[in-house]
Computed example of a mutant assay.
Amino acid sequence: MRKKWMAMAAAAVFISGCSSAEPANEQSKRNEINPLTGIESSDTSNRAIAVVVSNHPSARPQTALDEADIVYEVLAEGGITRFLALYQSEYPAEIGPVRSARDYFIELADGYNALFLAHGYSPEAQELLLSGEVDQINGIQHDGNVFKRDASRTAPHNSYIDMDEALRVAEQKGYNMDTVPSRLSFLSEEEEQSLSGEPAEEVRIRPSSNDLFESVYQYDGDSYNRSIGGADVKADTIFVIEADHRVVDAKGRLDIDLTSGGDAFLIQKGVRNLVKWRNQDGRIVPYTESGAALVQGTTWIHIVPASRGLNKAVEIETDREGNGS
């Protein structure tokens, strides 16, 4: 499999109402803004940490998904999904259950220069992780210290990260944990209030025919709420992109094209807009000719197969009139 994450070309500068040149005093304020949420914070000096989290029914409810700044939900084999959860604004004490890596999870994490944590790997992911080019800690080598087993659950859905141990091992390995990711583009509060589009009160996302992995979000007038096996999470932006998926081996492992761009739904503040997505320096971001950006807060990014298409994968329900698009 080609190593797309290593050959990724930088995309054009991301256009948004928030990306224009700023006076010096505004630039100093940027140091107090969390780069992945756009929210003011007293400490923004952390390196991002990316964790592969199971979404198997036996792994629910998960621990600390609600504390992530950005979550990708992506297909693995057999129509099931896994999460790549990114933590930068705060590090939870425990995260899990943790599952094995795929090369496209490493690709996504690399866009944020994140420390990559998983328990196990596909052959392609193993080659990348053991090359020495990725800062990573894996449960294959660190089961029992960084990755603790929960006796109340059955393997492989019982591996949890002990964050204190993870940071200790990262220090032992000489990883720099003060490398702050560059800031994403966010709407101002005024821009958030003026958002328009097709109304979107309830959002259902089905990346495959497996109903066990349907995502249902309800808008509460401010953000979108979702329950996963009894664990509640919140999304301020829901970004659903379609990308080419290709089965590459007898076990059903996938190659996902994360570089070519394509159509996407950007769902924020109770409205949906059809936009484009593109890969900007390894990050999946929304794009329109007139500008697009994230709402301040937590972002959930769903990657669905282009063969299924947005209109089949995403169902929108509403009980009010839209603002116009």
Rank of each mutant, 00 (worst) to 15 (best):
K269M: 15
D164Y: 14
V285C: 10
D236A: 02
F239C: 13
Q27A: 09
V13N: 10
Q88L: 09
A48P: 13
S215P: 09
L115G: 04
D135A: 14
V203R: 04
E73V: 07
A306W: 01
A231W: 05
P97Q: 06
D211A: 13
R102Q: 10
G17P: 06
L115K: 02
I241S: 02
E165F: 00
T288P: 11
L108Q: 05
P286E: 08
E90H: 14
A264H: 01
E67Y: 14
T318R: 02
N273Y: 10
A21L: 09
E73H: 09
W5I: 14
K251P: 11
V51T: 02
I256N: 01
D135M: 11
A85G: 15
D178E: 15
Q296L: 11
Q88P: 11
A155F: 11
E317P: 00
D150R: 10
N113Y: 05
P156W: 10
S196G: 01
G309M: 02
V314F: 11
A59G: 08
V285M: 07
N311A: 11
P35I: 12
F105C: 03
E190M: 03
T259A: 07
R149L: 08
K148S: 02
H302K: 12
D143N: 14
K148G: 04
A114Y: 04
Q280W: 14
R149F: 12
N176K: 00
G17N: 01
R99G: 06
G38K: 00
Y112P: 07
Q62D: 01
N113V: 02
V285H: 11
L75Y: 10
V74C: 04
F116M: 07
A114L: 07
P123K: 05
E202A: 14
R278C: 08
E133R: 00
V53G: 01
I33D: 04
V240N: 03
Q27P: 03
E214N: 03
P92Y: 06
D150M: 08
A10K: 14
L258T: 03
I33H: 01
V71C: 04
T288F: 03
A306I: 04
P207T: 08
I49K: 02
I303H: 12
Y217F: 13
M163P: 02
N46D: 13
D263W: 08
Y287N: 06
E317M: 08
S208P: 00
P181E: 09
P57K: 00
L258E: 03
E317Y: 09
S209D: 12
A250E: 11
V52P: 00
